[in-house]
């Protein structure tokens, strides 16, 4: 029994093209199977049955960047890994989104001062859409980050060729999407 059941019997739905497209895309954000350090354990927990990232349509972890929409950079990015992260990002098809998960990817984290080999934030390597702080972030925090990505997709003006940044809100709905 889903919320949509019984609501639209033998009816016509009117919507806009971009709403339908954005609705489709935000409901099937496929992340890339990609974990660098301990945050990946928490990302796996998010994917498992208790937190169940599949509720948001983002449970289909793809083993190749060419099928993925979302890169969750989970874990410490080292200088040696940075070029690989960049290459994986470039291999993803547009539209693509990046979540920086955890303190290390947000800004170097505990390695900021004395880590000789850690990139001080993955935004020095790839453009980041949503930062999820924490060491590691709780699965709820990652799901919140995923919902912010969904807000961002929801706000895209595909047909009008302009985009507005959503104002994040804890309810899961962005302020522009009235």
């Amino acid at each position: 029994m889903t919320w949509i059941e019984g609501r639209f019997e033998e009816n016509v739905i009117t919507t806009t093209m971009e709403d339908a497209m954005n609705w489709g895309q935000q409901s099937s954000i496929w992340p890339m199977t990609f974990g660098l350090a301990c945050c990946a354990i928490e990302m796996m927990a998010t994917g498992a049955s208790k937190y169940d990232i599949d509720r948001f349509g983002a449970g289909a972890f793809r083993a190749t960047p060419r099928q993925a929409d979302l890169m969750i950079v989970a874990g410490t990015v080292t200088c040696k890994m940075a070029s690989r992260v960049r290459r994986l990002y470039e291999q993803m098809p547009d539209p693509k989104y990046v979540i920086a998960m955890g303190a290390c990817t947000v800004g170097g984290g505990p390695y900021f001062k004395y880590g000789y080999h850690v990139v001080k934030g993955v935004d020095l390597v790839v453009p980041v859409d949503v930062y999820v702080p924490g060491c590691p972030p709780r699965p709820e925090a990652l799901l919140e980050g995923l919902m912010r990505i969904q807000d961002k997709i929801k706000q895209r003006k595909v047909t009008r060729g302009e985009s507005q940044l959503p104002v994040p809100h804890h309810s899961g709905y962005s302020a522009l999407n009235v």
């Binding site: 200088c79 940075a82 070029s83 000789y116 080999h117 990139v119 001080k120 020095l124 390597v125």
Partner: peptide, 19 residues
Amino acid sequence: HALRKDYEMPLDYHGIRNR
């Protein structure tokens, strides 16, 4: 060699700012 006590961290590595 990074665990030498007088090691200096590189300022950047292949264009990635390191400090």
